[in-house]
Amino acid sequence: MIEIDEEYCKGCSICIDFCPLEVLEISDKINRKGYYPPVPTYEEKCIGCRFCELLCPEFSIMVINE
């Protein structure tokens, strides 16, 4: 499961670009700071490698491995 803190996000898209399985997508909703945060649209493809969590410079993604 991928949890995203939308208010911390600065919309850099690093998580979207470097996800090896293309799980994330840019949201069409804007956050309070005016950035477009990611949404885990294809979450069923996620294998829990935590690469997005480690690469996120804003500490706003958390991957929970069940």
Binding site: E7, Y8, K10, G11, C12, I14, K33, Y35, E53, L54, L55, C56, P57, E58, F59
Partner: peptide, 18 residues
């Protein structure tokens, strides 16, 4: 103190994670 002051796509946050 978060969110931090570093620019969007700056690498310093990633280094802090590391």
């Amino acid at each position: 103190r978060l969110p931090h002051i570093w620019c969007s796509t700056c690498g310093i946050g990633t280094v802090i994670t590391a």
